[in-house]
Design a protein around this nucleic acid. Sequence first.
DNA 1: GTCTATAGTAAGATAGAC
DNA 2: GTCTATCTTACTATAGAC
Lengths: 200, 200
Amino acid sequence: MQALFENISQINTMRYSPDHKVGARARLIEATGALVKKNGFAATGVDGLMAAAGLTSGAFYSHFRSKSELLEAIIENELKRSIELFSDKTREQAVAAIKGYLSPAHVAHPESGCAVPSLAPEIARASESTQYIFEQGVLELKDQIRKLVRDDAKAWSIVVQLVGAVMVARGLPSEQTRKALLKGVAQQVKQILEEGSGPS
Amino acid sequence: MQALFENISQINTMRYSPDHKVGARARLIEATGALVKKNGFAATGVDGLMAAAGLTSGAFYSHFRSKSELLEAIIENELKRSIELFSDKTREQAVAAIKGYLSPAHVAHPESGCAVPSLAPEIARASESTQYIFEQGVLELKDQIRKLVRDDAKAWSIVVQLVGAVMVARGLPSEQTRKALLKGVAQQVKQILEEGSGPS
DNA sequence: GTCTATAGTAAGATAGAC
DNA sequence: GTCTATCTTACTATAGAC
C-alpha cells in the first residue's frame, strides 16, 4: 500500500520536466481548486471549471483524462498546502495556524481555505486512488499536529475538531452561533495543546 | 429568527391532515434521504431519487416544488432523527450513542447514519431557509450533548468531533487508519465526558 | 494547446392522459 | 397522484480546424 503511494507520487512528479516550475496543468489545478472548494465538485461542470481558468471546455481533456482525474489532482495539491500550514513551524506559529483555521475568515472563504471541510464527503465517494492520496495527506496533517501534543489520540482529536468545526460552522446562518461554536472548539483545542506541553 | 423557524415548522406540519400519520411525502423523504446521504445531493438526479421510492420523476413535483425543497425536508427529517439519538436518554444510553456514532459501522453505512457528515458542505451551499433548519437541528444536538457535560464549549467540541471524525474516516481507504482515528477521537471525547461528570 | 462544433446523455421541470 | 412524453438546458467527452 505504501508502495502504491510512492508510485503515484512518482508518476505525478515525472509527468513534467523538472525546469518547468508551474505549468499550465498546475495553474488549472489551482484555479479549479478554488472553484470546486466553493461550489462543490459534482455541482461544477467542466465548462465552469475551464472558464475559471480563462479557457474553454475543449481544452480540458488535453490536461486530464476525465473530470475525476482532476479531483484527484486538486486533492493532492490542496492537501499539500494545508499540510504546509502546520509544518516547519515553531510551536507559536503552529498554534497561530490552528487559531487561523478556526477563524470566521476561514469559515467565510472556502475558496481559499482547506479542502477537507469543503470536499470530504465527495472524497469519500471518489475513486480508491483519490482516497489513497487523501489518506496520505490526512496522516501527514495528523503527524504535524502530533508534534505539538506528542500523542496520536490527541492529534486525531484536534484534526477532526478543526475540519468538523469549519464544516458545521459553514452551514450556520447566524453569526452568533458560528462564533460560539468556533470559540468553544478553540477553547477545547487549546486545552489539549496545554495538556501536551510538558517537558520535551 | 425564532419566529421564522416556527412559521416554517407550522407550514410543514399543517400541510397534511392531522390523522395522516405517515403520508406519501414522508415516505419519499425517508427513501430519498438514504440515497442522498449515500451518493450526495447534487450527484443524484430526480429520476434516481424517485426510483428509490418506486416512482417515476413526473410524480416528484406533486410533492415538492423543486429539488432544493426536498433537500430542506430531508435535512429537517434527518436532523430530527439524529437528535433523538441523544435525547430522553440516561447518561449511560447517551454515552453509548456517542460510542455508536464513532463506530466503524456508522462510517461504513452513511445511508442509515447521521446526515451531517454526509451533507454538511452541501448544506453550506444551500438556501438560507435550509441553513436555518440545519442550525436549529445542530443547536438542539449541541444542547443534548450539553446535558452530559454542562458546558457549552465542551458540548460544541464533542459535536464537531463526532461529525468530523465520521466525515474524515469515510475518506480513508485503510481500515487501520480509520480505526486509529475513531479510537483516538473516542478516547478524547470520553475524557471530556469524565471531566464534566462532577456532582449535579 | 486551444478553439468551435457536436455527439450523446442526463439534468430539472412541465403538460396532459388516466 | 402517478404515469408517459416532452421541453430546455446542461453535462461529460470527442473530433477536427487553427
